[in-house]
Design a binder for these strands. Structure first.
Length: 582
RNA sequence: CGGGGUGUAGCGCAGUCUGGUAGCGCACCUGCUUUGGGAGCAGGGUGUCGGAGGUUCAAAUCCUCUCACCCCGACCA
């Protein structure tokens, strides 16, 4: 592509509404433009990147035997009512009406549609297994879209849905998808970590997230420094503490603590460490209040609370609910004499000499011994994992905290959708039963953003070659100089003929402008030639992520550069090939 | 949904407090010079001041309503 004819509107200044690198550089580099909050146009450069990612995904999916299809984006409400998600999905669903007033939504995901297809067409176990996938735009009316394509409302996603006659078969498909995802992200040149995720109350049994490691990631992860265990903090188990976290002396005693509504204030007022306090949080579990106890310096893990209480809806109690449950104003809840069910973090088992709220205004207890003074229904790991916590899977491994961007998610669904939608097959014995399902998503547009978060510097993007908009950018530094122009033109022809994707900056711009734009756009291999180099019979070659350029003879430059490109392509394919296809 | 903030030229912003001819930088157009890291000089303004209503002789500026966008929060009793 010739820059003189290309639509690549680059910007010198940082757009006012962008804060993260991927958003800034996608806008500045002319990859995307915003149309509304969380809604973007993909300009030619951005679209090329998306298509590259799609193609990698497509090849790896097809290699597993999955088949691509396309589904509607406007979906009828009745389908969503069958699974109950018309109501459950809440404000995330963009609802629309047709001219007759019939209700539709813009598809945020397509389980309902694909199950509808499957239940109509599939009758026998002989038709299974089947894996259907789509790569298309979806819309979720996010609470807060942000950071460009990292969390947008309209986005492009690959979603695969598999159908099986048995749970065992679903499990082996899960393993195939897991491997395919590793290959896909390796081919995209991403550094990622697979983490255990929350299979949730869905009744699913397995779920993993593929997280691209980046400072700007929205998800907090913990990873064991010794073994392979990694998990979303919300999902992370924590190894058993060596000894009770709170140990102290003293008898139960009520003390006045006027106005101390926070852990910090109580600790300061009584002059004790925060870890000597018992934090009492009141939650509404399916509408009924429960108390959750953690050490004063810890945070509650709501996913864990949900699991231990078996609640399907869990939210922090409102101020009034706290008052009616504890009989005390907001800020003085404690386990002693509390009438509602109490769940405590494992770390508090055997706690003595602790400080806790007294369930009355301006008072706390000191010398609390949980076993003696309160009736705890159950001890379990209820706190959020932190850096340095013991690993639950291995001996003396500890957690390291990192941030990630979720780019893929694999899910063993069980019969969550097939059951309410009555998607059944007959088995060998002629018995009807509901199909087992799995679903497997990849955020295509998010992959592009994540790649930039991981591969950029102060000047712009440094795309991994497999997903770069072009493989080589060719910069003739003086278009006015005939020898330079002719050398560049013939090199452009040679490379293009060799199957290399070249962005040829044939604009009549000054060298500085060309270098700046090239760095911004982030094409991995830069080939520059100017009066000086042509006279010396040389070209200048520089990888985007390297500091220094090298030179190569102008004679035979086309073949030399093409060879570099082929080698670079091969690197990623080889890395992917290390993961075998089960 | 709660809190904070911003809407003025294609982009980034000043002007608003204290009402009085709409500005700056970049970009863009013309010309000349320039050409290895976003060139210099000269000339050119391309604008429903987010929208509607109101106050006033006069509104970007004051008042009311409204729309859009951004940031933080929506778990630490």
């Amino acid at each position: 592509m010739r820059c003189s004819r290309a639509f690549i509107p680059t910007l010198k200044e940082v757009p006012a509404d962008a804060q993260v690198a991927s958003h800034i550089y996608m806008v500045r580099g002319g990859f995307i433009r915003r149309l509304a909050a969380g809604v973007y146009s993909l300009l030619p450069l951005g679209w090329r990147v998306i298509r590259k990612i799609e193609q990698i995904v497509r090849e790896e999916m097809d290699a597993t035997g999955a088949q691509e299809l396309h589904m509607p984006s406007v979906l009828p409400a009745e389908l969503w009512r069958e699974t109950g998600r018309w109501d459950e999905y809440g404000p995330l669903l963009l609802r629309i009406e047709d001219r007759k007033g019939a209700a539709f939504c813009f598809g945020p995901t397509h389980e309902e549609v694909v199950v509808d297809i499957a239940r109509r067409e599939i009758r026998s176990y002989r038709d299974l297994p089947l894996n259907l996938y789509q790569i298309q735009g979806k819309f979720r009316d996010e609470l807060r879209p942000r950071a460009g394509l990292l969390r947008s409302r309209e986005f492009i996603m690959k979603d695969a849905y598999s159908f099986h006659a048995s749970a065992e078969d679903a499990s082996s498909e899960y393993a195939r998808m897991y491997a395919a995802y590793q290959r896909i992200f390796r081919r995209c040149g991403l550094e990622f970590r697979v983490v255990e995720a929350d299979p949730g109350a869905i009744g699913g049994n397995e779920s993993h997230e593929f997280q691209v490691l980046a400072e700007s990631g929205e998800d907090a992860l913990v990873a064991c420094q010794r073994c392979a265990y990694a998990a979303n903090v919300e999902q992370a188990e924590v190894g058993a503490p060596a000894e009770p976290g709170v140990r102290g002396d003293g008898d139960l005693e009520k003390v006045k603590t006027p106005g101390t509504k926070t852990i910090e204030a109580v600790a300061g007022f009584l002059n004790v460490a925060q870890e000597r306090l018992i934090k009492t949080m009141i939650y509404m579990a399916d509408g009924a209040p429960v108390a959750v106890l953690v050490r004063g310096d810890r945070a509650v893990n709501e996913v864990a609370v949900k699991k231990v209480t078996g609640a399907s809806e869990l939210e922090l109690a409102q101020q009034e609910q706290v008052e009616s449950a504890t009989g005390a104003p907001y800020g003085f809840a404690g386990p002693v004499g509390l009438a509602i069910p109490i769940y405590a973090d494992a770390e508090l088992e055997g706690a003595t000499g602790a400080v806790a709220g007294a369930n009355e205004a301006d008072a706390h207890y000191t010398g609390v011994s949980l076993g003696r003074d309160a009736s705890v229904r159950r001890y379990a790991t209820l706190r959020l994992a932190e850096s340095g916590d013991p690993c639950p899977r291995c001996e003396d491994g500890t957690f390291e905290l990192m941030r990630g961007i979720e780019v893929g998610h694999v899910f063993n669904l069980g019969t969550k959708y097939s059951k309410p939608m009555a998607a059944a097959i007959s088995d060998e014995a002629g018995q009807e039963h509901v199909m087992e399902m799995g679903c497997y998503g990849i955020g295509i547009t998010r992959v592009a953003s994540a790649a930039i978060e991981q591969n950029h510097d102060d000047d712009g993007i440094a795309w991994p070659m497999p997903i770069a908009p072009y493989e080589v950018t060719l910069l003739p530094l003086q278009m006015g100089d005939e020898s330079v122009r002719e050398a560049a033109e013939s090199l452009y022809r040679e490379l293009t003929d060799a199957g290399v994707e070249v962005l040829f900056d044939d604009r009549d711009e000054r060298p500085g402008a060309k270098f700046k734009d090239a760095d911004l756009i982030g094409v991995p291999l830069r080939v520059a030639l100017g009066k000086r180099s042509v006279k010396a019979g040389e070209i200048e070659i520089k990888w985007r992520w390297e500091r220094e350029a090298t030179t190569a003879p102008l004679a035979g430059a086309g073949e030399a550069v093409a060879a570099l490109v082929r080698a670079e392509r091969r690197r990623y394919v080889e890395r992917a090939a290390e993961v075998s296809r089960p």
